[in-house]
Write a protein that binds this DNA or RNA. Sequence first.
DNA 1: CCGATAATGTACAGCGCTAGAAAGATATTT
DNA 2: AAATATCTTTCTAGCGCTGTACATTATCGG
Lengths: 337, 337
Amino acid sequence: MARVRLIDVAELAGVSMKTVSNVVHSYPHVAPALREKVQAAIDQLGYRPNLTARRLATGKTGMIALAIPEIDHPYFSELSRQMAEEATRRGYRVIIEQTLSDPDLERAVLSDREAGLVDGVIFHPVRMGTLDIAKLDAGTPLVLLGEAAMPVMTDHVMIDNVSAALDATRHLLASGCRRIAFLGVIAADITGSTSQRLLGYQQGLLEARIRLDPELVFTALEFTAEAGLRSVTDAIERGVRFDGVVCRDDRFAIGALKALHDSGRSVPEDVAVVGWDNTFLAAYTSPTLTSVAPKKTALVAAAFDLLEERIGGYRGVGRHVIVGHSLEVRESAPHAF
Amino acid sequence: MARVRLIDVAELAGVSMKTVSNVVHSYPHVAPALREKVQAAIDQLGYRPNLTARRLATGKTGMIALAIPEIDHPYFSELSRQMAEEATRRGYRVIIEQTLSDPDLERAVLSDREAGLVDGVIFHPVRMGTLDIAKLDAGTPLVLLGEAAMPVMTDHVMIDNVSAALDATRHLLASGCRRIAFLGVIAADITGSTSQRLLGYQQGLLEARIRLDPELVFTALEFTAEAGLRSVTDAIERGVRFDGVVCRDDRFAIGALKALHDSGRSVPEDVAVVGWDNTFLAAYTSPTLTSVAPKKTALVAAAFDLLEERIGGYRGVGRHVIVGHSLEVRESAPHAF
DNA sequence: CCGATAATGTACAGCGCTAGAAAGATATTT
DNA sequence: AAATATCTTTCTAGCGCTGTACATTATCGG
C-alpha cells in the first residue's frame, strides 16, 4: 500500500507536479478544464499531501506546542481545550507537552523549540526562573503564561494575581470573616505565582487593619486536593481557629471543603471558602465553590495574538499583557451572610 | 539567526555529514578522537537536528495521535496524561486531537492519518459506526478505544462494560437498594457504550428478580454534570422514588450527588450512588463517590502494545483486548450499610 | 496585424537529514 | 610481506513538496 505522491497524480493527469500542487492549493490561475482533470486524478488515486514534506519545503510546521505542568489538572485541561480550539480556528495544531513541574522537562521544552517541530511555543513555567528562560530563549517564537519568570525579551500573558487575591480577601472580609487563612504555600513553587496571591491576601488584611497571623498560612506539600485536605486537617487538629480561607487553586479548595466537612464544620457558616481558577469543579461541589475566575478566553486569545506576531516576524522586546479576572460567587462564600 | 545545519557542523569539524550524523546517533564505529571533535563542534554551534527533515528522510514521525471527544473531561484528561507518559517511555510524542463528538471531526481524524503526520492513531470514537470506520481505515496503524464500533480488521481495547455495570448493580442490591435507577442514557451516543452499561444494569436487576421500571432510566441531554443534575432533579420533581443510582460516568454522578443534596436527600442513607471511571473527582466529593474503575494503566499499555505491533508491520485481523476493572467502594455506596 | 501584457504551464533546484555503497585506513593472519 | 578481514569515513541519491525562473499560449489595444 504505497503512498500516493504528487508525482503519481501528475503522471496520471499528464501534467507537471507544480500544476498538481497548484490545484491542491487552489492557486487561481489554472485553466478550469485542467483543474478538473487533475482533481479527477487526485480523487481516483486518493492523494493526500505529505505534511512532513510540505513542512520541510516551506519551513512552516503549522503546529504550536503548549507546555503545561499537568494535563489532568482541571485548570490546565480546560485551558488546553480552549487552546486547541483557538488553534484550530487559526489554522494550527497543538502538541501538548507535559512538564510535570520538572525543571529538566521544562528546559527540554525550550530546547525542543529549536528542533523545527513547531512554529511556536506557549509555555506555562513552574520551576524555571527568569534567567533560565532568558538563557535558553533562542529565536523561536515563545509566549509565557502565568506569573513566573518574565525575561524582558519574552512575551507574557497573565492575570493580576495580587489584585485578584485582594478581591477574594475583601470578599471574605465583607461577609464578616476575621480570621482568614491562606491555603497553598508550597516550597517547590519558586515562580512567585503563589507569593503574589499571598501578597494580595496580606494587602486585604492590611486594609482591614487585621494583623497577619502566620499560623493562618497553610502549607501544602504538592499541588493536589489530597495535600490541601491534609494541610487543613492538620491545622484543625492543631487547634487553629479560622472562619475563612483563600485557596491557591480549586483543587486545594476541594481538599479544604472535604477537610471541613469531615471535621464537622459547615461551609460557609463556620468557614467560608474561596477557590481559584473557576474550573468546572467549582459548580459541582457541595456547597458550590466561590472562585477567582481568570478570563480564560481573553488569555488564550492574547497568547495567540502575541505568538502569531512573533511568528510573523516581530522581534521587539517582550510585551506583558494582563487579562481580566472576576470573582464567581457561589455558596461556599456567598455575598454577606 | 539562521539555524545550524548538519553540514555546518561537518564543515566546522572538517568531516563529512555522515560522520556527524553517526555521532548524533551514537553509531558505534566512530573513532573516539573524531567523535570528540565532532561533539565539540556540535556544542559550539548549538546544533539540534531538524526533526522535520529527519522524518522526511526516515518516514517515521515518532508521533502518535490520540483522538478523544474532550480534553477536559476528567476521564479523558487523566487518560491523556497516562498516554503521554507511556508515549514518552516508548519514545513517541502525542498529538491530542479533540473530536468534540462531532462526526465530521471524527472522520477527519481517520483521514489525517494518511497525511503522514503521525505513525499511528489511538482513537476513542463516539459517533462513528463500525462501517464508517472500516470504510476510512486506510493502511495507517490504528487502535480503537471504548465500546463503540469494532470493525473486524481493527484493533480494539476496552473494558467489559456489561460485567462492570453488573458489578455496580449487584453492589447496590447487596446493600439493600431495591429501586435502582440508571443515569446517563443519551440519544446522541450511538456507540453502544451506554447501552452495554444499561444491559449490565438490567442483568443485575434480573438476577435479583426485580422488574425493570422504565421510569428509573434517567435520560440526559449531553455528557455534562449539569445535564446529570437536571435529569435527576426532574425525576425527583416528577415524584419518581429510588434508593440507588448507577451513573454512566463520574460527571453524571457528581450532578446526581448535587441534585440529591439540593433536594434534601442524604447519600447514601436515602439514595446510594455509583459513578463510573473513578476519576480523581470521586475521592473529593462529599460524600466520596463509589465508582467503577477501569484499569487505566493496563488499558494504556495494551493500546500501545497493539499500536506498536501495527507500526512494526502486523497486518492481521483486529485483536480485541479486554482489560480489567474493579469497583472502588467509597462513601456514596459503601458495603452493606 | 504586431508587440505587449497577462494568463498558464513546465523544469528543477533545493529544504535538512538518512543510509547504503564505496573507498580508504588499519589490523590480523599465514 | 602479501593477502585478507575489519574499521572508519566519505559520497551521494533520495524522502515529497514548494517556489522561483523560464517557456508557452492567450488576450488585446492601437
